[in-house]
Design a protein around this nucleic acid. Structure first.
Lengths: 253, 253
DNA sequence: ATTCACGGTAAACGGTGTAAACTATTCTCG
DNA sequence: CGAGAATAGTTTACACCGTTTACCGTGAAT
């Protein structure tokens, strides 16, 4: 029985494989330092450009597809690294996750830009929806939730939140595993948004190069930013241990 | 005497004017929502595309030129807004500056991406040099310096800094007015890098749209991020006043 | 067995950045 | 003043790009 994944018809399986080949070819292009283009992807697959339109409605959709899969693949990588620490040590896992995220962003700035710096118009609801299923978002929210379960750090009560923000944390439009968080604990999502903003900020600054290269090399800006969050996450007691873990992963780069 | 600016020869003046027309045309294009392209700029000027190569060696250089001028123009705007508060109130000026920066980034996301999210390879020394003269950087470092003169907030001693970082603050490769800061006070630059990283982070997150639109609309993420920096900048006593100023500017959007 | 959807092709359009060769104007210098 | 050089344009051409249209096999479904 040759590894049945879905009860898909033959044609459907073929189609799925073609999608895989599309993102594989795109990933190759990016790794080679070439720009991502519809025509180049088609050529690499031995297809003519218009053929790709059977799979993707526009160049933008190709980009979104590739971005989604790159995010997924990268997250799997961070997750694997994080799982060197046991499931009952989510703080260590988060430290590894953050540092791995940065390592990836610095190693593959073009891929990072594609996934995380790609402008998304407020009006474009389709592309917004794509955002909500981003794998990396789920990875980080889940870790934050586990840390809270263990360390019970404080977060704002719903009543203390701005009404608009309250709405946003109750029914998030951002990537997050929030379904299992009871509504009254959704203040946690605010902590998530704020910490993600901080992490996203340094990493974007460093990955796009709008920063002194020596500062990037030293990793101090990133390190300081992450360490500032240990307190708010109730991890003060773990400071030394987590710092060591962080430095170890950063050194791997 | 008709406004002599430089003892330039006739041709040089003509050339300068053409440069101005280039950035003006490019700015128009962006404001119209069209993409920036060499050919479109040329067409708008009534020129043929290759003619622009007399002024700019490549498309990338055109982008850099436009980015530089957009940054300059935008900074002038923030500065004008900030100067509604007196020179001896740099804290108020910084609050206005930060909020104006955000307002601009949200109002002109394409321009923001051009100036601040435009990837810069570490190797490209020419483009790196361009960064060091960016107007906005000078604006913010200057304000931070003035705030320090007035409030004397603490900053790390050179000896407490990572050696690589110490090098970077002593001889910065980033946009900053640092010449008048005595070497022993260059720890200030570290505070600048950290605070700029935080400001850049939220604003980029919001401007590129990788964020819940409702959270952007509320301004709470940005507000909270900025307010977190009042403490480190010695502005705790001014908290209420500065918050009011911040909210007033944010409401202008 | 016929129909029809699917996945591909070729050709074409308008757009992009860039290189080369050529030309007209204008400044500079002997 | 006139010759020569530098400057600022042109035309033409090339190789890409995304996208549309019309066309055509093959294979699945009725």
């Amino acid at each position: 029985m040759p590894h049945v994944r879905l009860p898909a018809t033959r044609r459907e399986r073929q189609r799925e494989a073609t999608y895989d080949e599309i993102v594989a070819s795109a990933a190759e292009l990016l790794d080679e330092g070439a720009d991502l283009s519809l025509r180049a992807v088609a050529a690499k697959m031995g297809l003519t450009a218009p053929a790709l339109y059977r799979y993707v409605a526009s160049y933008q959709q190709l980009v979104d597809l590739v971005a989604f899969e790159l995010d997924k693949a990268a997250t799997a990588q961070w997750q694997a690294a994080a799982e060197k620490y046991p499931a009952d040590d989510p703080a260590a896992r988060l430290a590894v996750g953050c540092a791995s995220f940065r390592n990836w962003a610095l190693a593959k700035p073009r891929q990072f830009a594609l996934v995380f710096a790609n402008p998304i118009a407020e009006a474009d609801t389709d592309r917004r929806e794509l955002l909500t299923v981003s794998t990396s978002g789920h990875f980080f929210t889940d870790l934050l939730w586990q840390i809270w379960e263990l360390y019970q750090f404080p977060f704002p009560a719903l009543d203390d939140l701005d009404p608009v923000v309250r709405e946003a944390v109750l029914d998030p439009l951002i990537p997050a595993k929030f379904e299992h968080i009871p509504p009254e604990d959704r203040g946690l999502m605010w902590i998530y948004m704020r910490s993600w903003s901080a992490l996203y900020g340094v990493v974007t600054l460093e990955s796009t190069g709008h920063c002194d290269p020596r500062v990037i090399e030293s990793g101090q800006l990133f390190r300081a930013t992450v360490l500032d969050w240990l307190g708010p996450l109730g991890l003060d007691a773990e400071r030394d241990r987590l710092t060591e873990i962080l430095d170890e992963v950063l050194a791997r780069r």
